[in-house]
Amino acid sequence: MIGLILYYIGLALCYVGSLFFILGGIGLYRMPDVYNRMQASTKTTTMGLMSIVLGVGLMQPYWIVKAIVIIVFIALTAPVGASAMARAAYKSGIPLWEGTVHNDCDAPSCKEVEQQ
């Protein structure tokens, strides 16, 4: 009984993860800028992968320990990779979208990225 309940909860989590992947794909398709695409796709694919792994771990209860290991690893490394990629895109001179209203690295007090 409890196994069947866990099975359906895991199946619902897999569907939620798949829908997050589709949202990330739509964000990659429609957003106008590198940075907008990055913030649309990275968070959604991270959430989708985490919920799919947790769903599979609930559907097969003997796998839950390694599934939690994978979830912790993804939660630690995905923001690091995204921020490194955004920093590389800004330092390689890719211009921002023309509708951007605020850019912190335009100020002369920004020591992180040298002025071009």
Partner: peptide, 24 residues
Amino acid sequence: TAADRMVALDAITNVTAGMIIFIA
């Protein structure tokens, strides 16, 4: 740009990891 392609490739690798654990 190359950064666009790399962001899209990161999304595709995440989808592929989900597919692999689903194959499992």
